[in-house]
């Protein structure tokens, strides 16, 4: 299943030109653009791996796209997102965050039900992608180790 996390996740995958346009908009708004990746798509996984530091000093989106391409090449089977941070007082939050890369196969989630006291049920999501230990995940998906 195609995970729908982040902005534009309900639209068809963005082309490189569209990604460039979004990054350029973020740069024009003086937001700091950063690239992050992960192979754990759990919706509560908010801390992804950083691909380098946020790019505070770029003025052209081609530099951002260069980093996205480098991240894709180094992590071919991971979710990759671009996020832009707005540091102005009163906001100080991520202003834009969208996926720019997905693994070839997205197995999705399982809903786990756990019975607690008083026959109450607590629910949690289990992403199939994290079933293997981290070092074996790429091998399980048929690729060389990360």
């Amino acid at each position: 299943m195609r995970i729908t996390q982040g902005t534009f996740s309900y639209l068809p995958d963005l082309t490189d030109d569209e990604i460039t346009a979004q990054i350029q908009y973020a740069i024009d708004q003086n937001w700091a653009v950063a690239v992050e990746y992960t192979d754990d798509p759990h919706p509560r996984n908010v801390l992804w791996e950083m691909w380098g530091l946020p790019m505070f000093e770029i003025s052209d989106a081609s530099a951002g796209l260069h980093e996205v391409a480098a991240c894709r090449a180094a992590n071919p089977d991971h979710y990759i997102k671009v996020s832009a941070y707005d540091a102005t007082l009163g906001r100080q939050t991520t202003a834009l965050s969208f996926l720019v890369g997905r693994p070839a196969v997205e197995p999705g989630f399982r809903l786990d039900r756990q019975e607690m006291s008083d026959r109450r049920i607590s629910y949690s999501l289990h992403p199939y992608a994290t079933e293997q230990p981290r070092d074996l995940r790429s091998a399980a998906n048929g690729h060389r180790g990360s």
Partner: peptide, 12 residues
């Protein structure tokens, strides 16, 4: 989808 399409177009 409607709101995402509008924001995407506005950013472009």
């Amino acid at each position: 989808v409607a709101v995402e399409a509008m924001i995407k177009a506005r950013n472009e």
